[in-house]
Computed example of a mutant assay.
Amino acid sequence: MNIYDYEVATIDGQHKSLEEYQGKVLLIVNTASKCGFTPQYKGLEALYQQYKNQGLEILGFPCNQFGHQEPGNETEIQAFCSSTYDVSFPLFSKIEVNGNHAHPLYQYLKDEQSGILGSKKIKWNFTKFLVDRAGKVVKRYAPTNTPESIKKDIEQLL
Results as ranks from 00 to 15, higher is better:
Pro90Gly: 02
Trp124Asp: 06
Lys151Tyr: 03
Tyr48Ala: 03
Lys152Asp: 12
Gln65Thr: 06
His101Phe: 07
Tyr85Ala: 05
Arg133Asn: 08
Pro71Cys: 14
Glu57Asp: 04
Ile11Gln: 06
Lys16Arg: 15
Glu76Ala: 15
Val137Ser: 07
Gln78His: 15
Ser83Arg: 10
Pro39Trp: 09
Asn64Phe: 01
Gln54Asn: 11
Thr75Trp: 02
Glu7Phe: 11
Phe37Arg: 09
Ser93Ile: 13
Asp5Phe: 10
His15Asn: 04
Lys123Tyr: 13
Glu20Val: 14
Glu19Trp: 04
Asn64Cys: 02
Thr31Pro: 10
Thr84Leu: 03
Asn53Asp: 15
Ser114Leu: 10
Lys121Val: 12
Gly118Val: 04
Pro62Asn: 07
Phe61Pro: 01
Tyr141Ile: 01
Tyr48Asp: 09
Leu117Ala: 12
Lys52Val: 12
Gln107Val: 03
Ser149Asn: 08
Asn145Asp: 15
Ala46Asp: 15
Ile11Glu: 05
Ile28Ser: 01
Ser33Ala: 14
Phe92Gly: 10
Gly118Tyr: 09
Pro62Phe: 00
Phe92His: 15
Cys81Glu: 07
Leu117Ile: 08
Glu76Asn: 03
Ala102Gln: 07
Tyr85Phe: 15
Glu7Arg: 13
Pro147Asp: 08
Glu74Phe: 10
Gly72Phe: 04
Glu112Gln: 14
Ile77Lys: 02
Leu157Cys: 12
Pro71Ile: 02
Ser119Trp: 12
